[in-house]
Amino acid sequence: MKKILLSIFMCLLLFNTTYGAEISDDDYYLKNSGYTKEEFQYLYNTIVKGIKNVSINEETFESVPYKPGINYVIKKAFMDYDHLNYVSGVRYVYSRGNRNIKNIYFEYNYIRDDIKKRMNEADVKADEVIKEIIKEEMTDFEKVVAVHDYIINNTRYDYEGFKSGKIPNWEHTAYGPLIRKTGVCDGYSKAFMLILKKLGIECISIKSDNHAWNMVKLQDKYYHVDLTFDDPYNEEGDMLSYAYFFIDDSEMAKDHNWNSEIYPKCDTIDFNYYKNNLGMIDSAKDETEFKEKITAAINNRIEYVYLKVDNTNMDIDKLIPEVLIENRYNIKISYSYKIFDDSFKISIIYN
């Protein structure tokens, strides 16, 4: 009888390992948790199982001891599976005797049946999007571009809800952008993550105190991608930008904050959109040079301009119209831009 019970337990343990990604030996959360890799992996898989199944309770069979580092396990699971996350809280119970964890409980913002319905709708829609926009001959980079463009072109950022502080909970999930066509930063991030994971492309969610975006891994290197910041709005309406598409830590840190200790390093721009696709990376020491660079960009129909400048007080809204008038361009353009301490990022749309 004892052998039978042991066999059942081992089968359950083996089944549990199918739920989550494999934890690497150098994982930040593992190294700081105080758990062995096997213990961490088991708890991680249990939590991921709960997230995926919208569980109320997952039993751990008292196989792993309680340690304060369990919070690292929870954070790791939520980071890796944030695209499925409707969980509002997690708590755990451990035995007073051997202090082994007995159960992990999940709390939700919605009725669980409604959550499952929304998760299923978003999942089905993600499959439809892949069928619509992804071609067999595409590289992984081209697939990421296609998903980035689809979400931005089909989602309206909820500025009204953001300003009023009244944002529906579903706008924080993949359901918002994919089904309701509206959302806020973590909704964009989760929709992006959901589709990329279906494509087998590694993608994680990055969170600061008041913002969310992604890191994408291509050819063993990580890059920042922020769909919300690539969906700027001006008087002409929504615009598609690549200013925050495959950029490194140094560039992202100009206007984003995150705990760099717990996330992978992004230290290359090999796949940066400006570098690889109709982009200009240059410098301008004064207004005359700025206008020369913009003229060259327009002449060559360049859509994305990154300029290092000596003076960020230049009036872009005055200089770009002057370029159009002085060159007598018979075209209409729309543009958006971001100003940093030492540079401009400008996106141009040719109408």
Results as ranks from 00 to 15, higher is better:
residue 246 F to S: 02
residue 249 D to V: 01
residue 306 Y to E: 12
residue 62 E to M: 10
residue 194 L to R: 09
residue 135 K to F: 14
residue 20 G to P: 01
residue 105 Y to V: 11
residue 339 I to T: 14
residue 306 Y to M: 08
residue 102 K to D: 15
residue 248 D to S: 05
residue 169 N to D: 13
residue 81 Y to C: 05
residue 183 G to Y: 01
residue 163 K to T: 12
residue 299 N to E: 13
residue 342 D to R: 12
residue 200 G to K: 10
residue 132 E to F: 11
residue 108 Y to C: 02
residue 6 L to C: 10
residue 87 V to M: 02
residue 304 Y to L: 11
residue 290 F to Q: 01
residue 251 E to T: 15
residue 130 I to H: 02
residue 35 Y to V: 03
residue 316 I to T: 01
residue 33 S to W: 10
residue 112 R to V: 11
residue 259 N to S: 13
residue 219 Q to R: 13
residue 55 S to W: 08
residue 168 P to Q: 03
residue 175 Y to F: 13
residue 172 H to Q: 09
residue 291 K to M: 14
residue 27 D to Y: 13
residue 226 D to F: 07
residue 121 E to L: 15
residue 280 M to D: 09
residue 5 L to R: 11
residue 158 D to Q: 03
residue 71 N to G: 01
residue 340 F to W: 08
residue 30 L to K: 04
residue 293 K to T: 05
residue 329 Y to G: 05
residue 14 L to G: 08
residue 81 Y to I: 05
residue 140 D to S: 14
residue 245 F to W: 02
residue 64 V to C: 07
residue 74 I to H: 07
residue 54 V to P: 08
residue 327 N to E: 10
residue 210 N to E: 14
residue 296 A to G: 09
residue 306 Y to L: 14
residue 337 Y to V: 04
residue 161 G to A: 04
residue 105 Y to R: 11
residue 54 V to R: 07
residue 141 F to I: 15
residue 309 V to A: 02
residue 10 M to N: 11
residue 347 S to M: 13
residue 145 V to Q: 13
residue 49 K to Y: 08
residue 71 N to T: 10
residue 23 I to Q: 00
residue 18 T to N: 12
residue 105 Y to I: 14
residue 228 T to V: 03
residue 318 K to W: 00
residue 164 S to L: 11
residue 82 D to Q: 05
residue 263 Y to M: 07
residue 247 I to P: 00
residue 298 I to T: 07
residue 251 E to H: 10
residue 247 I to V: 14
residue 134 I to V: 14
residue 212 A to G: 04
residue 42 Y to D: 02
residue 90 V to G: 13
residue 276 N to I: 09
residue 12 L to H: 09
residue 119 M to A: 09
residue 61 F to T: 00
residue 247 I to F: 00
residue 239 M to T: 04
residue 76 K to P: 01
residue 48 V to W: 00
residue 160 E to A: 08
residue 305 V to S: 07
residue 135 K to T: 12
residue 23 I to F: 06
residue 56 I to P: 03
residue 246 F to Y: 00
residue 303 E to C: 00
residue 69 G to P: 04
residue 147 V to E: 09
residue 248 D to C: 08
residue 337 Y to K: 01
residue 155 T to E: 10
residue 63 S to H: 07
residue 125 K to P: 06
residue 289 E to F: 00
residue 219 Q to K: 15
residue 89 G to M: 02
residue 41 Q to E: 15
residue 61 F to C: 04
residue 341 D to Y: 09
residue 327 N to G: 01
residue 301 R to P: 07
residue 265 K to C: 07
residue 318 K to F: 00
residue 243 A to C: 10
residue 278 L to R: 12
residue 47 I to P: 09
residue 163 K to A: 11
residue 288 T to M: 14
residue 27 D to F: 10
